[in-house]
Design a protein around this nucleic acid. Structure first.
Lengths: 109, 109
DNA sequence: ACAATATATCGTAATATTGCAATATATAAT
DNA sequence: ATTATATATTGCAATATTACGATATATTGT
């Protein structure tokens, strides 16, 4: 077939999967790191910093935006992107509950 | 083209992307939650709990194992899977540094 | 209105992912 | 050795992703 059976999973599982999928590409990780490191909006030419074509970066930004992880506002000729705080907080909350759970008994297996 | 240009990104960015890609599917999230909730190895028939065919689950387990997130040990007739503590710790460390950075000034954008 | 600059979208080729039936392999018990 | 049970692998069809050139759209300055 080739398409995920979302209907058999919970809303929470599907939401987390969508956000993680948006994160799961080195180019998108690099883009988010640029925003985070700048500690502000980023309005410029990411295609120079990263080694990808302008069309490709625009596509990655769209995916991050569709997943709700960033938001873009038109600022004159350019567009400024920054972290979407709500989605970021949700992601953090879901991941924290997920990553911190296992006590990881060393004797297991 | 259709393949990620891993050579233009850092080792760290690529490693994180690989781990996140392994996590970025509701079935694999569900599998990991089963292991985490059991707080032990899981040796049984996940194909009943989740609504997927045995072949599909085996494939998802393989992807989690390839990404290094779980480990499997043969236990008689069945195979027991549990969290791989080292990879889990690495993932947690990388994600923590990533998710906690932005101070998220509300005035931005 | 027109040119210059910045970003988005379209179209397309190459590759990857998802899911499953069918089949293979491996261990345990008789 | 044979059977029963559990997991893995193979092969395949449907769909998704990645990347980019070409083109479209939108805003600013003249």
């Amino acid at each position: 077939m080739g398409l995920t059976k979302t209907e058999i999973f919970t809303e929470e599982q599907n939401r987390l999967a969508v956000m993680l999928k948006a994160l799961a590409h080195p180019a998108r990780i690099a883009i988010l790191q640029q925003i985070i490191n700048a500690n502000a909006c980023i309005c410029g030419d990411l295609s120079v910093e990263l080694g990808l074509a302008q069309a490709t970066i625009s596509q990655h930004l769209k995916e991050l935006k569709t997943a709700g992880l960033i938001q873009g506002t038109i600022e004159g000729v350019s567009v400024c992107y920054c972290i979407e705080p709500k989605a970021w907080a949700l992601l953090k909350a879901q991941l924290t509950g997920f990553l911190n759970s296992p006590d990881l008994q060393p004797g297991c297996c």
